[in-house]
Amino acid sequence: MTAMFRPRPTLMVLGLLLLLVFWLSLALGPVSLPLSDTLLAGLRLLGVPVDGSGTQQAELILGQIRMPRSLLGIAVGSVLALSGVAMQGLFRNPLADPGLVGVSGGAALGAALAIVGGSLLGGVPPAVEPYLLSVCAFAGGLVVTAVVYRFGRIDGQTNVATMLLAGVAMTAMAGAGVGLFTYLADDATLRTLTFWNLGSLNGASYQRLWPLLIVAVGVALWLPRRAPALNAMLLGESEARHLGFDIERIKLELVICTALGVGAAVAAAGLIGFIGLVVPHLMRLLVGPDHRVLLPASLLAGASLLLLADLVARLLLAPAELPIGIVTALIGAPFFLYLLVRGRS
């Protein structure tokens, strides 16, 4: 598989695209703000002392609603796409998805436990409530991934195929757990659970953003350092080992990066499918399989696609809004099919 485009210009275009989408995400919303107000409010939020009379509403909407939401979108989108690259590299399979090691299933189970369990116990202390769902989802993702990784360890080595099958089995078990909680749930919690499963950037706040942002920056800095190893693994595990890479360590690092990244993303925004599977795939078609380019390209494209999907989600049915998982699939899947067909001819 060769690249359609040369790496450097493609990365620059993707970067510009992300900037553009970020700007749109700040400038557009159900509340229509005049462009001048948006600019003034933006300047004031950056600490530039310009005349602020008449821009209070714009400042609120920009600073408290759109900015955290857009940053959350960038963090979630890039982390999901990077984890997708890591998983596809680890399993040497372009159909690998971050959910494959059980992190999504585990997070869903944790979330179901928090949503339904909390209401079954007759409510949780108000001090804990805002964090309970996120913490449980994050912990659920980590625990299930750890179990899957443990199953893959045989004689001090990680057998990727066993890990994959263990991931499938653990995801099925987590699914059964979620099903059980779905049965136990009352009407209201059931709907909360359903909406959570479709993901949303709605109600983003800086509070919810920081933990994810730290993890996202960590993953985005760490994974590119492993690009040469991922490239070597394309040849096969033993070949990579002969080239001098500590494969067992790399595999563990990839799993940890995915578990932390996807776990934090899911904890902050619910289950958002498709980005982790399709973005790396798309980028491989665009820039080729070299992970030194593939990783940054996927980061940029994942963030852009998620922001774009969120824009559609909040504009299409305003004042109501669509769960974003529906939109990512609706935008991504046809585009993906188009590229597949095009690549064939």
Binding site: T192, S200, A318, E321
Partner: peptide, 18 residues
């Protein structure tokens, strides 16, 4: 009337726009 969606999944900006 404009619909604001389901009560447990309200959208802040959508409602402010009203």
């Amino acid at each position: 009337l404009p619909g604001i969606g389901y009560q447990r999944a309200l959208a802040a900006e959508g409602i402010l726009a009203l």
